[in-house]
Nucleic acid binder design. Sequence first.
DNA 1: ATCTTGTAAGTAAACGTTTATTTACTTATG
DNA 2: CATAAGTAAATAAACGTTTACTTACAAGAT
Lengths: 198, 198
Amino acid sequence: MRPKNLEKEEAIRTIALQIIAEEGLENLSMQKLAKAANVSPRTIYIKYENKEDLLITLFIEDVLGGYEKAVLENFNPEVDFNQGVKKIWLNAFHYLKENRNSFALLQYGKSSPLLNKAFQKANIKQGHFFAPIHDFLQLNVAKNIIRDFPHDVHRAMLFSPLLDLVNEYFDYKERPEQIITEQIILECCEAVTKGMLK
Amino acid sequence: MRPKNLEKEEAIRTIALQIIAEEGLENLSMQKLAKAANVSPRTIYIKYENKEDLLITLFIEDVLGGYEKAVLENFNPEVDFNQGVKKIWLNAFHYLKENRNSFALLQYGKSSPLLNKAFQKANIKQGHFFAPIHDFLQLNVAKNIIRDFPHDVHRAMLFSPLLDLVNEYFDYKERPEQIITEQIILECCEAVTKGMLK
DNA sequence: ATCTTGTAAGTAAACGTTTATTTACTTATG
DNA sequence: CATAAGTAAATAAACGTTTACTTACAAGAT
């Protein structure tokens, strides 16, 4: 039996993310993707059921999976609050900075109904993404260190500014000077953390 | 000369936003829009140059314009910091809650390269959106009340959590109980404000 | 007051192109 | 040499946009 060519599989995923980042999700077509990845359209259908399956798999496994892994690297839910949030912020910032194409699809997760629904399903199915962060926050609520909010509210408060700052980072990448430096990220992290303390 | 039928113009805009909110930007087609708005495809092209023009106009004029107007209603850049941020948060929350379809396209502004570019152009052209907020923040930096960050950083820190909370509001609308209440919004606003103080 | 009439608004149907997906065939390897 | 991986070419449907035509009305002439 002829074995799968993993390079082609990789090419499909990489090029798909690239097209989405450069031209938008609304401009990704299977034929365009096949041509750009140097592959026959049929080959994509060997690896994915259809376009929807491709997008959802890419979003859940590659993008969200990769992001989660990077964010949780060397993260210990038992460290103190300031230190824990700082670790997450730096992990996320460093990863996303170097993975612009993944970040682009990640952003579509909030807009596209398709990806939004897929995320909610995956989130329910596999417990949830970012479980250690959930534990970390629960722990700090129990210790009476931070305000007691529902988890989704905690997430919005602590991490949405970071994603917005990464967005700005890429916007400023094409301008004379970068304003989103590691220094700024650290100061912003401090401000966000301070706001959550009791 | 036959006069323009303003109801048709209105229908095109309203239905376009509806389709984007329900099926995503990637599923809006001119023919689908025409049929849903009870209008001939040609009629859309009387009012807009092409699909790109329709989307950009809808985004800049209707969505961003309407959002800006609502957010700045009765906002005075000279009030004290806590009060000013609270006013903006409540204005935005109340407006977006009642304008889900506008909010959906607003969210695409961060993902779609087309809308992102359009926004940057419009932002440069007409001075900038939300100028009174810009002034408000400058004033509070000058008075040494808040940290001195670039404006885009201020914006990310103060308002991106709010947009994320509105997103959660709509997610929870289809679930047994709503967690994003006005009470929560006010507490979150307080936390965000506190973090920015010097 | 009523009747043309010029003109932009509006329509139905069609344009060529691109879309997602499939069919019929070839290739590579355990 | 069986079999799944892969290809080139084709499918029907949907796409953005245009063509050829009709409609409704403000304004000038009667």
